[in-house]
Amino acid sequence: MANFLTAEQAKVYSDHAKLDIELYKQRLASLIEENAKQGNTAVFTVLPKHLPLEDIRNLSAQLTDLGYQVRFELNEFFYSFNVYWI
């Protein structure tokens, strides 16, 4: 049986994680490569809302320059980021 953290514990962990856009770039790069090797054409990732929007825009521009299509959505508590290639 899986044991879940309480929401309060998750918030404490999240507050102390000190995540920045560079960590998300590395993970997204890995997801893109893994998906491409499996023949998939899209990657979806969720970014925490505390990341600066300018950093996310820069990431989107970098991916667009590399030929990817990026769909970015702003949700109430997080950003969603879809990367496509055709």
Rank of each mutant, 00 (worst) to 15 (best):
K18D: 05
P52M: 13
T64W: 05
L19I: 01
N75A: 12
K11P: 00
V46W: 06
L63C: 04
G39W: 02
L28G: 05
D55A: 06
A2D: 03
S30G: 05
E76N: 01
Q62G: 12
A36L: 11
L47E: 06
F81G: 03
S80E: 07
F78M: 12
N35I: 00
Y13S: 09
R57P: 00
E33M: 10
V12L: 15
R27V: 05
D20P: 06
T41I: 01
V46F: 08
G67E: 10
K37V: 00
E33R: 07
S30I: 04
N75H: 09
E8M: 15
E54Y: 05
L51S: 02
N58P: 01
N58Q: 12
S80C: 06
T6A: 13
Q38N: 08
I32C: 10
H50E: 09
S14F: 14
F4I: 00
L23K: 15
W85A: 15
A17P: 00
F78P: 00
R71P: 01
A2S: 10
F44Q: 06
N58H: 08
L31M: 14
A10G: 04
T64P: 03
Y24G: 08
T45W: 01
K37N: 01
N40D: 02
S60I: 02
F72T: 02
Q62L: 13
L19S: 09
K49M: 13
G39K: 14
S80N: 06
Y79C: 02
Y24T: 04
Y24R: 14
F77Y: 10
A17T: 06
V12K: 14
V12F: 10
E33N: 05
K11V: 08
N75E: 03
L63R: 05
F78K: 07
F4M: 09
